[in-house]
Design a protein around this nucleic acid. Structure first.
Lengths: 210, 210
DNA sequence: GCGTGTGAAGATATTCACAGCC
DNA sequence: GGCTGTGAATATCTTCACACGC
């Protein structure tokens, strides 16, 4: 399987999967690229191209079988064969929201531990997940073979914490901090700063209308 | 000011602003496109191009004045002249995290109210913000001239709630639900589904290494 | 008829490379 | 020497349009 997949395509693959899961829940068995495109802001050719990057999954004249395509997309995204253990660092409000959200598991992610440096937070259990002292992060990550971390610490601690996570072998970081992170080669970062999202919107509402 | 600004550029403008705010806090007065690019995964020419979309803000041989550029970027992003009132819909855990996060205000956003349909949640005050019944959303949005909403309801309620918000005059939605939304022409949606972010990462860690 | 898969064309975004100014 | 701003070149992404199979 090739490696030069554009970022926008990967984002859309996620979006297709979300729609397909919904369709499957409604009992729909077949779907066309045009339908799928309708849910996303995209054209039907775009949908077919995105899928064609990985193989041929449809039938001409018919479309795609919903359940099949779900499995294909999960395989592509890496959430079919394995359940990904994930750690959350920083036991604040975002962490709380993440640990009580029950939707991750069925999508292939499993929050196995949270870490903090605040003794008042350490020892608590939130949503069935223990909040552990930051010192434990290396052994836990290694023992459970955790490769993904969610970073939810204050901005001024983000970079240092990220460095530490990378040392423990973390390869992917979902970053809720407002700071951009400096990470070693081979570590992927996905930015989830909420303020930036709001700024995208405020930009679009500011004198840039079509 | 033109309107055909690429989405990736707008995302980077946010990122530059975050870095500049940090630099300003550290007392740094000048910055070059190369430095700025170093924080982001981008080249120096990219930084200059992004800024050149809106004007000329640097001095040759010198670089950019940090405070000036902060003001420029805030103006571009629309967060300099005005404080944006924002409503949160769905008073769950994410809402709780949003209402207790104190960083929005200094970045130009002000959460003015939260809404829910659950009587047990209505009437509470979280982080100084009242949780109001969903029926009040239209009058509040109109009275406070709210144009931005954060959608934090369960997936199955997302589309219907979004429709309702658009009817109230909301023009930008930050969507935490896993569903893609169908919104009228002229309404902007920014997707913040956390599972999708995790899927981006798990994809990159799955057999697609360089 | 319908809908996929895909070369070829087109549109967009990024990088190069250098003139011009500090 | 350093660094911006920007045409020109390149790379990347998206759309068109049609052959092929259902």
């Amino acid at each position: 399987m090739d490696h030069n997949i554009p970022d926008p395509s990967v984002r859309r693959l996620s979006a297709y999967l979300r729609q397909l899961e919904r369709l499957a829940g409604e009992g729909t068995r077949h779907v066309s690229s045009r339908q799928l495109a309708g849910y996303i802001k995209a054209g039907d050719a775009q949908v077919r191209r995105d899928l064609a990057l990985f193989g041929q999954f449809g039938r001409r004249g018919v479309g795609y079988e919903v359940d099949d395509l779900i499995n294909v997309l999960r395989t592509i995204l890496g959430t079919r064969q394995r359940q990904w253990p994930v750690v959350v660092v920083g036991a604040g409000e975002i962490c709380h929201a993440l640990l009580t959200y029950r939707g991750f598991r069925q999508r292939g992610f499993d929050v196995v531990a949270a870490f903090d440096i605040d003794p008042k937070k350490i020892g608590r259990t939130i949503g069935g997940v223990d909040v552990l002292p930051m010192e434990d992060c290396a052994p836990v990550i290694q023992r459970l073979e955790v490769r993904l971390a969610i970073l939810a610490v204050p901005a001024d601690a983000a970079d240092e914490t990220a460095r530490r996570l990378c040392e423990c072998g973390i390869e992917g970081i979902l970053n809720f901090a407002t700071t951009g992170l400096e990470v070693p080669e081979g570590v992927f970062v996905s930015e989830a700063d909420i303020t930036s999202h709001l700024e995208q919107l405020s930009f679009r509402l500011t004198s840039h209308r079509p």
